[in-house]
Amino acid sequence: MNKKKIRDLMGEVMSWLASSITIAACLGIIIYLFNMGHAQIDIGFLTNEPATTLETEKNGILTPLVGTLLLTFIGTLVAFPWALGTAIYLSEYAKRNNLTETFRLGIDVLSGVPTIVVAIFGLAVFSNPALGFLSSMVEGVQDVNRAFGRSFLVSGITMAVMILPFVIKTCEEALKSVPDTYREASLAMGASKWYTITKVILPTAKNGIITAVILGMGRIIGDTAIVWLTLGGTLRMTGVQPWWRPDNWLSTLKNTGSTLTSYIYFMSPAGEGHQNENAFGAAFVLIIIIILLNLLTDFFMGSKEIGK
């Protein structure tokens, strides 16, 4: 009898221990980043461009920050209509047959594909000279011309492919959670199917769809593998300077740069940058952005489900 009680207690203690380790890891990482990174954050850090060790001017994260925003913007812009369209088709039009089920399975499989695989896929596809207009052309040896395959546009589109299956699934769930009575009521009033979708179903599923988009953005912001392969290894913008002038925007987009994640990598010992303080500064900024996105998702979905 008593033995049983002790065994039960042990079990509960072990569970609490497990959860303490998990939570401690989370808190530990955030506190550590704060400790190491907060001193670095000032206006100069946020508004200067990255510098190599040789330069004396202050090193900053302006272009990585812009790079992250740019990639997120392009990736979302491409992925959102694509994913939402597919989700609408799947939830409102697709018949339940083998083809649809196979397609759903395909989406599941694609969402399990590691980002690094999507990354080399992106690089190889966009190195095709026919798609050179998205990046730049390189003079190859022996007259073999190929595209550089690395630019903000390329990277953004690759990001879109990466988040596509996830956003499709989350949007479809949101659409499916709209009760059928809404559809029936609208159709019974004589509204067309498309009208029902745009005026009844989408507004009802709005929060779920917004959540899907924010979670997708989070993935883009946090990704490094795709940035590494398809945005190139440059810290600064490599298009026509100054990169921020509107007439140079197209050039900026067709050339390479960096994001917060690749900046952190380059500044870390792994990227041979050996400027740990800057890596921590950027990591701190990145984690703040991630926390804000998390709060935003909480707001839109009432903290019900954890991002899968």
């Binding site: 980043l33 946090g222 990598y265 740990n276 990591a283 991630i290 998390n294 903290s303």
Partner: peptide, 23 residues
Amino acid sequence: LQSFIRLLASIPSVIYGLVALLV
């Protein structure tokens, strides 16, 4: 607790890498 778990799930891998490399 759930918020912490969600946060842990969304920390970018480069940050995990950085912390692991230096700790």
